[in-house]
Simulated assay, not measured.
Amino acid sequence: MTTATHSDPRPSGPDQAGPRPSGVLRDSRSVFVREIHPLLRDPLNIVFSLMQPLMFVALYAPLLGGMTGAPIGQAFQWFIPGIIVMIALFGTAMTGSNLLYEIQSGAHERMLVAPVARSALLVGRACKEMVPLVLQAVVITAIAALWGFRPSLPGMVAGLVVLAVFGLGLGALSYALGIASRERDWMFWTVQQGLLFPLMLLSGMLLPLENGPRWMQVLSAFNPLKYMVEAERALFNGAFGDPAVWHGALAAVLTAVVGLWVGIRQMRHSI
């Protein structure tokens, strides 16, 4: 007499067994190292990604200075922190396209059967996106310093930390969107472009919103990017006591919590 055995069809990865936090951190580090190697082998990607923000610095900031009548160095004190937030916005919002390509090529499916927690696949990837963000911010700041931009160094460090937390959540949301649109890649670009530019324009990143219509000011109050821009301007100018700092820090933490929750949930249920 034989007894039939039934195998559990569910994945047997680390997340199913409830890995210890130390295991998730170790796996996240392994994924981070894997993802950072292509960037280190081809640093020109960081250089080319700087082209757009450099064009804004070279062409838009002088126009802004001419409109306000302020010296270019003073205009940079207001403008450059917003450009650094722009770098974080565009950089992290694009990360889901890389995951979407890996899904379509089959590389992501091979990663899912690796002996690592699925949550670590997302956390490690998202942390990797912080490296080019910091490098690009340093380069932009150094170039703007040639025209009189004088940031507070402690404030700049604190601002980049806050921005990294925000970018972690935004990158996770981009990954979640990439997974959700794996069978319809056009949906990723439609949603991403449909949200990206309204978020940017309603943040006061390029022009102050104080002189805009009332309806834009009301909409901007629901835009977490607005609080990030205001916090970065305060920190880069050394105004640690400005209420905008903790407003931006709170927006960054909430974005990270929501982004990681949504992203990890999507990663655990990805095929």
Score class of each variant (00 low, 15 high):
Met1Val: 15
Thr3Gly: 15
Thr3Val: 14
Ala4Glu: 08
Ala4Met: 11
Thr5Ser: 15
Asp8Ile: 02
Ser12His: 15
Gly13Met: 08
Gly13Asp: 09
Asp15Ile: 04
Asp15Met: 00
Ala17Val: 03
Ala17Pro: 10
Gly18Ala: 03
Pro21Lys: 08
Asp27Tyr: 09
Ser30Lys: 11
Val31Tyr: 05
Val33Met: 11
Arg34Leu: 02
Ile36Pro: 10
Leu39Val: 10
Leu40Arg: 07
Leu40Pro: 08
Ile46Leu: 13
Met51Ser: 15
Met51Arg: 10
Phe56Ala: 03
Val57Met: 14
Ala58Ile: 15
Ala58Asn: 03
Leu63Thr: 08
Met67Phe: 06
Thr68Tyr: 09
Gly69Leu: 01
Ile72Asn: 09
Gly73Pro: 01
Ala75Tyr: 07
Trp78Pro: 08
Phe79Leu: 12
Ile80Asp: 04
Pro81Ser: 00
Pro81Met: 02
Gly82Glu: 05
Ile84Thr: 06
Ile87Gly: 05
Ile87Tyr: 03
Ile87Leu: 11
Leu89Met: 05
Phe90Trp: 11
Phe90Glu: 07
Gly91Cys: 02
Met94His: 11
Gly96Met: 03
Glu102His: 08
Ile103Gly: 01
Ile103Trp: 06
Gln104Thr: 07
Glu109Ile: 11
Arg110Met: 12
Leu112Cys: 02
Leu112Ile: 04
Pro115Ser: 07
Ala120Ile: 09
Leu121Ser: 13
Leu122Ala: 09
Gly124Thr: 03
Arg125Met: 10
Val131Lys: 13
Leu135Trp: 06
Gln136His: 03
Val139Leu: 14
Val139Asp: 09
Ile140Gln: 08
Thr141Asp: 01
Ala142Cys: 01
Ala142Phe: 08
Ile143Arg: 00
Gly148Leu: 07
Gly148Glu: 00
Arg150Tyr: 01
Pro151Val: 06
Ser152Trp: 02
Gly159Cys: 02
Leu160Ala: 02
Leu163Phe: 07
Leu163Glu: 08
Ala164Gly: 05
Phe166Thr: 07
Leu173Pro: 02
Ser174Tyr: 06
Tyr175Asn: 09
Tyr175Trp: 04
Gly178Cys: 05
Ser181Ala: 13
Trp189Asp: 13
Gln192Lys: 12
Gln192His: 12
Gln192Ala: 15
Gln193Asp: 12
Gly194Cys: 08
Leu195Phe: 12
Pro198Ile: 01
Pro198Val: 07
Leu199Ala: 07
Met200Glu: 06
Leu201Val: 15
Leu202Met: 04
Leu209Asn: 05
Glu210Arg: 11
Pro213Val: 14
Leu219His: 00
Ala221Gly: 13
Pro224Glu: 04
Leu225Ile: 14
Lys226Pro: 10
Val229Ile: 12
Arg233Lys: 12
Phe236Gly: 03
Asn237Met: 04
Asn237Asp: 09
Asn237Ile: 12
Gly238Cys: 05
Ala239His: 14
Pro243Asp: 02
Val245His: 04
His247Glu: 13
His247Thr: 12
His247Asp: 13
His247Gly: 10
Leu254Gly: 01
Thr255Asn: 02
Ile264Asp: 06
Ile264Gln: 12
Ile264Lys: 04
Arg265His: 15
Arg265Ser: 14
Gln266Cys: 13
Gln266Met: 15
Gln266Val: 09
Met267Lys: 10
Ile271Gly: 14
